[in-house]
């Protein structure tokens, strides 16, 4: 099969690394060749972060380039807008509707762009917007946004519930397992 490309984008500290690790582990268990490219270091400190997950029969490049992503999972609205150019024609953008102001907006040097959902939809992108923060809080912790969004992403794969749950178990500390499973299920179940 042709290599598939998934991008997970967000703000440093939102838990994008865990999401990409979980996804990579699941894809490997399904027998695919997998590469996951991460971001460490300075940009993790509240900067714009991106991780790439690629899978198929044989994967070479560890990164996804402009116009290549089949699915982008964005943890924040502005980051969805920033990375939308990486989506292929007909690709899907799953996004958390949460807004986190970057420093130029906080200092008043720039404004947070308005109506981003409408503008992204106007590009012909399949937009799947969800209030992941509200669902994470419902599951019991605002930090579970990553698992809510993984739940949402699971709707675009044919993997069984058990396969996802196994991957979650291998990726999160036992103490937070139930909370994370709950967040995943809430993300998965939320109707359009």
């Amino acid at each position: 099969m042709q290599t598939k490309n998934i991008m997970i984008v967000g703000v440093g500290g939102q838990g994008t690394l865990l999401a990409s690790k979980l996804l990579g582990r699941l894809l490997l268990s399904k027998g695919y060749d997998v590469k996951v490219s991460e971001v460490h270091g300075m940009s993790q400190r509240g900067g714009s972060v991106v991780t790439y997950v690629r899978y198929g029969d044989k994967v070479y490049s560890p990164v996804v380039d402009k116009g290549e992503a089949d699915v982008i999972v964005s943890f924040e609205m502005l980051e969805a807008a920033r990375w939308v150019e990486y989506l292929r024609t007909g690709g899907t953008l799953i996004t958390n509707t949460q807004q986190v102001n970057p420093m130029p907006v906080i200092t008043g040097a720039m404004a947070y762009p308005e109506n981003l959902q409408e503008k992204i939809t106007a590009l012909g992108v399949q937009l799947d917007a969800v209030d992941a923060l509200a669902l994470a809080e419902q599951a019991g912790n605002a930090k579970a946004v990553n698992l809510v969004l993984m739940g949402r992403l699971s709707r675009y794969f044919d993997f069984t519930e058990q396969e996802w749950m196994d991957a979650i178990e291998q990726s999160v500390p036992p103490k937070f397992l139930e909370l994370n499973k709950q967040a995943f299920l809430l993300g998965q179940a939320k109707a359009n």
Partner: peptide, 14 residues
């Protein structure tokens, strides 16, 4: 790919 036709504020590390 196709980008939005507007300036997206940068998000530098803080």
């Amino acid at each position: 790919g196709t980008s939005l036709n507007e300036t997206i504020p940068m998000r530098p590390p803080v």
